[in-house]
Simulated scan of single mutants.
Amino acid sequence: MAQPRILILGAPGAGKGTQSQKITDEFDVDHVTTGDALRANKDMDISDMDTEYDTPREYMDRGELVPDEVVNAIVDEALSAADGFVLDGYPRNLEQAEELDEMTDLDVVLYLDVSEEELVHRLTGRRIDPETGEIYHVEYNPPEDPDVEARLEQRDDDTEETVRERLRVFRENTEPVIDHYDEQGDLERIDGEQAPDEVWADVKATIEDAA
């Protein structure tokens, strides 16, 4: 498989970004995320759609959610321009999954399986250096410099209350997507609680086996 078409699923904190970067490097494919695709196509003409605004930019500038219809079209455009890809952050709901089925034939669907308590531990332990923007973790990746450690801050969306709400929303919206691919026999579950290198070994082997 020279340039596979891969979908990676997982809750916030499951490690999708880390594994997606490794996939792009190893298999020479594009990393397609909804956010990047939206930013790259924010001036796309959507006047032919039954939407309130004529470009995605107008939704984004107002802080409003871009309608599914527009997101679907942008993702379709991004995937059609890629010889191979790892798709991260889409589909977020069953309707989008059904749209994706119409857009492309996936070679493999990966699901990074991590328990809620481990996800909470990972996300609530994250800290940011306000001066550099570097991300650390109080247990897994603390800074070596005590001055850096002293100025680290926890982001508002990394408090336990906020994290658990994000995970609740993920379960509500995205678990039907996981079930969708599982019922089709396409879902490959990866134990996301292993060390990152062990997760990567399983991810790489799974993609190669799908060739």
Rank of each mutant, 00 (worst) to 15 (best):
P4I: 01
R5V: 00
L7N: 05
L7V: 09
L7Q: 07
I8L: 13
P12D: 06
P12V: 03
G13W: 14
T18F: 14
I23W: 09
T24I: 14
V29T: 08
D30P: 06
H31V: 00
H31Y: 13
G35K: 07
A37G: 05
D43K: 15
D43Q: 11
D45A: 04
D45M: 03
D45N: 13
S47L: 01
E52D: 07
Y53I: 00
T55Y: 13
Y59M: 01
Y59W: 05
M60H: 13
D61E: 15
G63P: 14
L65Q: 08
L65S: 07
V66D: 12
P67F: 14
P67L: 12
D68F: 07
E69I: 10
V70M: 12
A73H: 10
I74K: 12
D76K: 15
D76C: 03
D76V: 00
D76W: 09
E77I: 01
A78T: 05
S80V: 00
A82F: 12
D83A: 14
L87C: 04
Y90K: 05
P91W: 10
R92N: 02
N93L: 00
N93A: 02
L94V: 01
E95Y: 06
A97L: 14
L100P: 02
M103W: 13
T104P: 00
D105S: 15
L106V: 03
L110D: 01
L110K: 08
S115A: 12
S115Q: 13
S115R: 15
E116S: 03
E116K: 14
E117L: 05
L119Q: 03
L119Y: 10
L123W: 11
T124F: 06
G125E: 08
I128M: 11
D129F: 06
E131V: 00
E131R: 10
G133N: 05
G133L: 04
E134C: 05
I135W: 05
Y136A: 00
P142V: 02
P142D: 04
P143H: 08
P143T: 01
E144M: 02
E144T: 10
D147F: 08
E149S: 10
L152H: 11
Q154K: 13
D157S: 07
T159M: 13
T159S: 15
E160D: 09
E160R: 12
E160T: 07
L167P: 11
V169A: 05
F170A: 00
N173F: 04
T174F: 06
T174P: 05
T174Y: 07
E175W: 14
V177F: 14
V177H: 15
I178H: 09
D179T: 12
Y181N: 02
G185T: 06
I190E: 02
D191Y: 08
G192N: 08
Q194I: 01
A195R: 08
P196L: 10
D197S: 11
E198M: 12
A201S: 15
D202G: 06
K204T: 00
T206S: 09
I207R: 09
I207K: 08
D209V: 01
D209W: 09
A211K: 12
